[in-house]
Design a protein around this nucleic acid. Structure first.
Lengths: 225, 225
DNA sequence: TAGTGAAGCAACACCGTTGTAGCATACGAT
DNA sequence: ATCGTATGCTACAACGGTGTTGCTTCACTA
């Protein structure tokens, strides 16, 4: 009978890089499931079947681990976002602004569905996170906002060009009275994020298609007529 | 020189009820300023110029304190919300649905401006809070959602009644193709909450009027024409 | 098959927070 | 004036988290 309380069995050795991503994966799981505050060095270690010093060997401290996690995930999110926000089409380009928006929504929500954990982390603010990181998320959001603003300004102009003056009876000028573009852009982003949250919470009730159809209907209703 | 390290001066005595609200106020301050996790028995006590046992005298434990805080604040929020969500007007009632919505937005944002702390607590999810309480907030939101859904269904019907068939050229039937009312309601709520967050973050950039005007324009653009 | 260094482990000291026990004092009633 | 009690305070034990030290074991190389 040697040691009733036997020594912990050794975890499989693993090259640093691999262990690193394994730990980040574990941290992500915990953060998503139990909130940011629950991402403890010990819990992360245990989740990976390893002890704390191993974690400290790869991340100098808890802050660094959280930073690394957030950096990885916001990076992924950014990457997924690039195709969602296409550059503003050239002036001669014959692109339908409405179609562009619908395609954007679709791409965005599809991306969210494909990496739910990443987006959960990004979309649900995460109070426990170091403030600098919240700032990073905010910055990325601001970028999106600008890009969307630009797209919108273009889109509104493009729509006007399409309707070659029926203005006699005030029929045109629907979105004409100088829309508050900044607000409109924020509304869109908010809308998309709201949709994303719904998709994350109850994917079954909210197929991407449902949002696409809805958006189409709305844009249609808003159309100059 | 009696006692260089003198005894802590006694805080003014105070009836339990008064102390209680004072402590809740302190807790609210902390939660709003430094996040939920920072609401510590000790910090609350110090903020109120008192020691921990006093707090424990009024709240059995930290959970109870947080519960009491959340209950008070969600209560306030609910109360403020009542006038924002009027009952569905009777069928004979001549109320303009658009005006009703704009008035709602205005009332809501005004309420938010008037009690920013309460709304900050409610609108910024609060990861550190006991899950049951998050559930409470969610439930309240669901209520609002239902109420808005009902208002919307009524509003859409009312609008249709106003436009007595010009349908020959497809001019009517703007919101007619069976709008996804649930989604529309969620969009509105999301919109209002987004607006509230903006108001809380940068009150100066976002006067209530700006949202009212915007909403009016949007509804106008959506109008059957 | 021996040796060596990277990868892992137990154990420790330290800190902030929770919750409690028992003592001190202010203050209203007598 | 004094006295009792509600109100407050100091001090302490326990817990869970962080970050570190020094010993152990695996696995590769010679």
């Amino acid at each position: 009978m040697s040691q009733l309380t036997g020594r912990r069995p050794y975890a499989a050795r693993m090259p640093a890089q691999e262990r690193r991503t394994q730990l980040l994966d574990a941290a992500l799981r915990i953060a998503v499931d139990q909130g940011f505050a629950a991402v403890t060095m010990d819990r992360v270690a245990r989740a990976a079947g390893v002890t704390r010093p191993v974690v400290y060997g790869l991340f100098p401290d808890r802050g660094a681990l959280l930073a690394a996690l957030l950096e990885r995930e916001t990076g992924r999110a950014q990457a997924a976002l690039a195709p969602v926000l296409p550059p503003v089409p050239g002036p001669d380009n014959e692109v339908d602004p409405d179609a562009l928006l619908v395609a954007g929504i679709r791409a965005y929500l599809t991306a969210v569905r494909e990496s739910p954990d990443t987006w959960r982390l990004v979309l649900f603010p995460a109070e426990g996170a170091p403030p600098e990181l919240q700032a990073a998320v905010a910055a990325s959001r601001t970028d999106s906002l600008h890009q969307i603003s630009r797209l919108l300004t273009w889109g509104i102009a493009a729509r006007r060009r399409d309707v070659p003056r029926v203005d006699t009876a005030g029929l045109t000028s629907v979105l004409t009275p100088r829309v508050d573009v900044e607000l409109f852009a924020r509304m869109l982003v908010g809308l998309a994020e709201g949709a994303a949250r719904m998709v994350l919470d109850e994917p079954d009730s909210w197929p991407v298609q449902r949002f696409a159809v809805f958006t189409e209907q709305m844009l249609d209703a808003l159309a100059v007529r």
